[in-house]
Write a protein that binds this DNA or RNA. Structure first.
Length: 355
DNA sequence: AACACGTGGAG
DNA sequence: TCTCCAAGTGT
């Protein structure tokens, strides 16, 4: 059963003045002082757009500021190491984004001579940049006529045209987003439609009486604003048991046995404690590495990811002698490292106890 | 075409 | 506390 398609032809009336109304609203009511909006450059738009993927503005702000201080431009970024980026990214989540920024920085250095490309295809080719981020860079930084389709724009479009269905007819939404673009001022327009979604056309209790589009908004007319967009059915999280071993160096409790995660899976490339899926697995690890010592439950953490519920037992092993373990190393807990939230929590607890 | 990928804001 | 989901992308 096909979702109800909004014929753009039939809704031409709805498109009249759409962009103009939005832009004039934005002038007085939009956000104009976010750090990536000051002295706009493709570099700033790129970094901010990556950070803002599935992440709220408030959360991004401190990370973005630190990033721009450490890496004010493409050249300085291209001299960074992935580990440095991951350390900065720690706590922000979706760590693949940091890896993709790193990869892109190397491409900008080697292929584009430190100059951010201007062609849609070139930009879309860069790791971590999809259609929406490419559209944002092209419109906001270069004032070119390209659409975006982020959460805000989806919500505005679905409400304005009263589009039902949870199965985003993506192509149709992209077409509609493109059809809304004005002839000029696409930089401002993109900001405007995002701001409308973020400030007025919010998901719960939208402020329709303040909306510049309320005269023609179809779902407002049909009293459907609280039903559109329709809720997706929630996914059932898989429960996963995890055992992390907390092993401090015999000579100094400042050092903890750690290993960097592989470059796929959760927390890719981040530092991790010895991690196992079962008791037998970690006991086998201790045995095969000739690690003896009393083991005891140190902590228990439940950590929710968007798709998993992690139940993490932290087992502390008290060493009785000096030890080295293949593929692991002793990390100073006072060094800054890229790590996941649970690892951060464990290290923080350790530091508190050592004081 | 679903699913993996993190964390925290907000009600 | 619980639930939803945020300036999405890659596979």
């Amino acid at each position: 059963m096909a979702p109800p398609v909004i014929g753009i032809e039939q809704n031409k009336l709805l498109l009249n003045n759409f962009a103009e109304d939005l832009i004039s609203w934005h002038k007085k009511n939009g956000r104009h002082n976010l750090p990536w909006q000051i002295k706009i450059s493709p570099y700033k738009v790129w970094i901010s757009e990556i950070m803002l993927q599935q992440t709220q503005v408030k959360t991004v702000l401190p990370y973005y500021k630190e990033f721009l201080i450490k890496y004010p431009n493409i050249k300085s970024l291209s001299n960074s190491k992935l580990d440095d980026l991951l350390e900065l990214w720690t706590g922000l989540g979706y760590y693949r984004r940091a890896e993709n920024i790193y990869k892109t920085s190397q491409i900008l250095k080697n292929k584009y001579n430190y100059i951010f490309p201007k062609k849609y295809e070139d930009i879309l080719d860069l790791p971590g940049i999809g259609k929406s981020t490419a559209g944002a860079i092209l419109s906001i930084a270069y004032n070119k006529k390209y659409p975006i389709l982020d959460g805000n724009v989806k919500r505005v479009i679905k409400r304005y045209f009263a589009i039902k269905g949870i199965n985003d007819n993506e192509n149709n939404l992209w077409n509609i987003s493109e059809s809304l673009l004005p002839a000029n001022n696409n930089n401002i327009f993109t900001q405007s439609i995002m701001d409308l979604g973020a400030l007025v056309c919010v998901k719960k209790n939208p402020l329709c009486n303040e909306c510049p589009l309320n005269k023609k908004c179809k779902s407002l007319k049909l009293k459907l604003t609280d039903k559109i967009p329709e809720k997706k059915q929630k996914l059932v999280k898989k429960h996963v048991n995890l055992y992390l071993l907390l092993i401090q160096k015999y000579e100094s409790e400042k050092f903890v046995l750690m290993k960097k995660n592989p470059s796929d899976g959760i927390w890719a490339n981040l530092w991790n404690l010895p991690s196992f899926n079962g008791v037998n697995e970690y006991k086998k690890f201790l045995l095969s590495n000739n690690i003896s010592g009393t083991s005891s439950q140190y902590d228990y953490i439940e950590h929710n990811l968007s798709h998993l519920k992690l139940k993490i037992d932290i087992i502390k092993v008290e060493l009785k002698k000096c030890t080295e373990v293949d593929n692991y190393c002793w990390k100073n807990i006072y060094d800054k490292i890229g790590s996941s939230k649970p690892i951060m929590m464990i290290i923080d607890k350790l530091k508190r106890e050592q004081k």
